[in-house]
Amino acid sequence: MTAITAAVSLLAAPAMAEWKPDKPINIIVPWSAGGSTDQVTRVVAPILEEALGTPVVVVNQPGASGSIGTKAALDAPRDGYTWTANAIANNATYAVTGLIEDTSIDDYHIYLHVANVPVVSVNADAPYADFGELLEAMKSGDVTVGTAGVNSSGGMALAAIKEAAGEELAARMVAYDGGNPAVLAAASGEVVATTQLAVEQTEMIKAGKLRALAVLSDQPLVVEGIEEIPPITNWLSDMPTAPDYFGVFIPAGAPQEVYNTVDAVWKDKVMNSDALKSYATERGAVFAPSYGDQARERAMPVVIAEACARVSRGEAVVDPSEIGITCPAE
């Protein structure tokens, strides 16, 4: 190819348009302030703000296991200025539980930042020395467990524990508007335990208000400043576990330059962010940024697990196959 031909080819190729937002971007966090989604979104927002050159405002809009704020983002104009944030499995499975009609993972462009794990903790004054003792009490006594609701990571964790135990548990879930109030309820003794995410609990564990008994993983959890948390598989050896990926999501239908620009920002800034790495290390999360097809591929195991668990527990009002999720054969 001659130099002249190459120059002509470059001129003929369509340039990738760069989005230059001219007003603030709102990220709707569909949970109360201080919870896992709120925490990490407030770490990521300043990174995006600096790179995009416009204010990025975090808006808390809790209610109905995160579905109210999520629907508000879906109902907003598809102009690139209203995003949402959550655990991706929530956004992908709201239709299965009937909380939001006719929605799926395909409604979003996906930008993941960390993976989180639930931890089983009890009030510091609770009499349970380890998870085995708590599990026995859950079988025979009325143990109260604070979560952010049925569709939250804590609610799903409690349901998974009940399923893995293989017998009826008397533990009673008490739902709050977010992970932070659920954790504070356990720390104050309003409930006995919580199954919310590690990132929501670490400060209360470090302060001696909560005692961590198990992490919902097959590996121990190591967090700066607290003792290693043993894996729940020490007691429930066959319990399946999957990373719970969190991120921000831009509803589909915006101009393509919005996604092109945010893709580039995510690759160049978020995936190399020291602030996000520090947050993950200090709070007990996994630094795992990705976007596009890679993000979707990473997310699908937990999306499938949570959608299909709803079916096995009799909680589904819509079959996952209707939103493109195939459950493994029994």
Rank of each mutant, 00 (worst) to 15 (best):
G225R: 09
V122E: 02
T147E: 02
Y279R: 01
Q39Y: 02
G155N: 04
S290I: 01
L112Q: 10
I304K: 05
G66K: 09
A165K: 12
A129M: 08
K206N: 01
G253M: 10
H109A: 15
W266N: 11
P181M: 07
Q294S: 14
A6I: 12
E297K: 14
I205K: 11
Y259F: 14
A307F: 02
A13G: 00
A288Y: 07
G98C: 03
D244S: 15
L10C: 05
I27V: 14
N260H: 09
D38I: 03
G154K: 08
G155C: 06
M271G: 06
Q256F: 01
I4N: 11
N90G: 13
P24E: 00
L158G: 04
R296F: 06
G166A: 11
P118T: 08
A33P: 00
G132V: 07
V40C: 03
N116P: 00
V44T: 13
K20W: 01
E163P: 00
T41L: 05
P289V: 12
S36C: 08
K139S: 13
S321R: 13
E163H: 08
R283H: 15
S312R: 14
Y245A: 06
A15F: 04
V318G: 02
D244Q: 14
V248R: 02
A175P: 11
E163R: 14
S104N: 05
R313E: 13
N180V: 00
T41A: 12
D22A: 15
A285I: 06
A165Q: 11
A137H: 11
R172E: 14
S217F: 01
D38C: 05
L236W: 12
S321A: 15
D319N: 13
L210V: 06
A264L: 09
L134K: 11
P77R: 06
V120K: 05
V265P: 02
T147S: 10
K20C: 02
A17H: 04
R172D: 10
A285H: 06
D102V: 00
L221E: 03
A76P: 10
V317C: 00
V57Q: 11
A164D: 11
L158P: 05
E168W: 00
P77Q: 06
I323H: 07
S36E: 05
V96G: 01
V248D: 12
A329E: 15
A275F: 01
P220F: 03
V174I: 15
Y128A: 03
V303H: 08
A187V: 07
N90H: 13
E200L: 02
L197M: 14
G253T: 10
F246A: 10
C308V: 05
V122I: 13
L158Y: 02
K209G: 01
R78P: 01
P24V: 00
W83I: 13
D268W: 07
R42D: 01
A171R: 09
T70N: 13
G149R: 07
S152P: 10
A186V: 08
N260W: 12
K209H: 11
T195F: 07
G69R: 10
V8M: 10
A33L: 01
V150P: 00
G34E: 10
M271Y: 01
G155H: 03
E257V: 08
A72M: 14
A17S: 09
R42C: 04
A92W: 05
P77W: 07
R211D: 04
P301G: 04
V262L: 15
R298F: 09
A126L: 04
N123Y: 09
I100L: 04
N116A: 12
T93I: 09
S140V: 13
C327E: 04
T281Q: 15
